[in-house]
């Protein structure tokens, strides 16, 4: 197969015209294996893309759960839009992971009727997910959703921004698009954090409570899993410890403007990246994966 670059190939068209959204498309990654650049370990690239893809997928699901529950129509639309952006990122990253791990070596329940990308999203169990636990925490009130979005998107933006120079051109391209999207998500969350934190007594109290609940999960954002360490060394990934200063600066600026205290840094740890999750992820997956598992290969 010939293509100008790996980006063209990963997004290669197929007869079903289902690349961006929806279901029913065939393997969009045929012939992509050769595109793993020299010096990049395919298994590490796959594992690394799974981490970033799972963060986006699980966070997107939590935002989707807000549909019909948001406090006002505009926020309903906003949260759904953000969820859609993250789902788009998750799809490309899972597809990239599937391509990099190579067909036939896939440990997931890949069958002829289930595609690699879908297999990764719908047929892995909780211990196989590599997302940080911040994104799997059950939803709370609106302040909780906003504070989580602020913490998540500030962190993800810092990661994606550095990944635009990744040695893997596919990851670099996904990151370059993602930076524009996530910057807008972060600014949206920042505006709401300030409005709520510096708002009424009740909104301040709730935002502060959300910060108390979510802040302990931030230590995991900067823990370095061995895959991340190798990915950074090989030039296609980012050492998460490197983004802590930027995260602290941005979050600190927003919290100060929101009249909220900035909690003390949480020691870095590795948990979700290694497959250690809370029970909440299992419940989330039961909801997200139920239909695909009951009807493998279903399309609509």
């Amino acid at each position: 197969m010939s293509f100008d670059n790996a980006l063209g190939a990963i997004a290669e068209d197929n007869d079903e015209a289902r690349w961006a959204f929806g279901t029913g498309f065939h393997d969009p990654l045929a012939g992509i294996d050769a595109s793993v650049p020299d010096g990049v370990d395919g298994a590490d690239l796959a594992a690394y893309c799974l981490m970033l893809g799972d963060d986006a997928l699980v966070m997107s699901h939590r935002l989707q759960e807000w549909c019909t529950h948001a406090p006002e129509l505009e926020e309903e639309v906003a949260l759904a839009n953000i969820a859609l952006d993250l789902l788009g990122q998750a799809r490309l990253l899972l597809a990239r992971a599937g391509a990099a791990m190579g067909t036939g070596q896939d440990e997931t329940a890949l069958t002829e009727t289930v595609l690699t990308e879908d297999a990764l999203a719908f047929f892995r169990d909780a211990p196989e997910f590599r997302n940080v636990r911040l994104v799997e925490e059950p939803n709370g009130d609106f302040a909780h959703a906003i504070v989580r979005l602020l913490l998540f998107s500030t962190w993800r933006l810092a990661l994606l921004d550095r990944l635009t120079s990744s040695a893997d051109p596919v990851l670099a391209a996904v990151a370059a698009k993602g930076v524009k999207e996530v910057a807008y998500h972060r600014d949206h969350a920042a505006l709401w954090t300030i409005r709520l934190g510096d708002g009424t007594e009740e909104s301040h109290r709730r935002t502060r409570r959300a910060l108390d609940v979510l802040w302990p999960a931030t230590g995991e954002l900067f823990g370095v899993h061995e895959v991340e360490r190798r990915a950074a060394a090989a030039g296609f990934g980012v050492d998460p410890a490197d983004v802590r200063a930027e995260f602290d600066a941005v979050v600190g600026e927003v919290l100060a403007a929101a009249a909220l205290p900035c909690p003390a840094p949480v020691p870095a740890e590795v948990a979700g990246r290694g497959g250690a999750h809370s029970a909440a992820l299992g419940a989330l997956l039961a909801d997200m994966q139920g239909l695909a598992r009951a009807h493998p290969g279903a399309t609509w």
């Binding site: 289902r18 690349w19 961006a20 959204f21 859609l84 952006d85 993250l86 788009g88 698009k177 999207e181």
Partner: peptide, 18 residues
């Protein structure tokens, strides 16, 4: 024909393609 999505998750891309 080469097209590029406006946003990563833009669902209109399928319709454009068709």
């Amino acid at each position: 024909v080469s097209i590029t999505p406006t946003y990563t998750g833009c669902p209109a891309l399928d319709a454009m393609r068709d």
